[in-house]
Amino acid sequence: MYNHQDIISLLAANVRATKSPFGIPKPLVNTWWKGQGLGREGDVLLMTGLMYQLVPYIETVTRQLERFEDTRFMPYLAWARFVPKLLSGLGLAALTPAPAKDKAALHLRDIVAALRASGVSFGYRPELDEYSGILLYDLGDQESFVRHARLVAERLAQAGVRRIITVDPHTTYALKVLYPRYVGAQFEVRTYFEALDMGTGGGAVASPDAGGARLTLHDPCFYGRYLELSDLPRRLLGGLGHQCADVRECGAYTSCCGGPAEAVSPRLSARIGAGRAGQLAATGEQLVTMCPICLSNLEKAGANVLDLSAILARGLPRREPDQAAGPGQ
């Protein structure tokens, strides 16, 4: 297990200097939107919080941390914060395989396809799409979290943003619960599947090729427990003709994928992930989740998991970009 001070110092210094926990320049991380014909204006702003985009880099970092955990080299991590951020960020970007980055982008494009299919009007402004700072909050670095959250919230407020669609549970919890509580920023925040549910009037219309699969959902902790958003994905999937076969540990009693521990102990994270993958495997059905961290950690544990967005994007009838999103970029 790594020293928490070393990890927190490094992440906080990165966020302070670059607004990203890994110091990678945003133009390298956030490219998924190019060629999507996304409008900048809309009733609501789509905000990814960069979580899906950061996962390939998190996987790269975790692989390196895993190699040195509890070895004599581990204490040298303390020196990492003295490496210039741009240099370490570019190095990390170079070490991260392109297919992993493409895969992360695919999930976000599926989310956009599903939103368009359900007629939800939204805009996307890459310059406003920032990391929420949630990892700093989870690690207990309240001072750094509040500083970063204030910065992100102020930029959104200055741009006149009032309503936000989010795509992952961590950013959703940050914007919906933590930002109002700690920096007084009030936005109307909905997850993409809440927006889809509203867009389809609570009853999704399946495309003709939507299938009646049996699926087992892994509820991310923030959705299942903290935000109590377990029913909606099941209702949407049910509307598309799928059946959900739940394990006992679901909804408000879901079990963690282990992801949050990977910064301080990849070994612990892997152990928790393997346990959760074992619980989910009991149904023998296709696994589905809706969090990039859970997706990555369960896959690492050997589970075959789909992102909810892939099923929704395939299940809802396709619409052309200009039918939902306005002028393209």
Partner: peptide
Amino acid sequence: LWRCLHCGLCTQT
């Protein structure tokens, strides 16, 4: 303390 995943299962139960 940093072994805690902040998963909230203890709080739930």
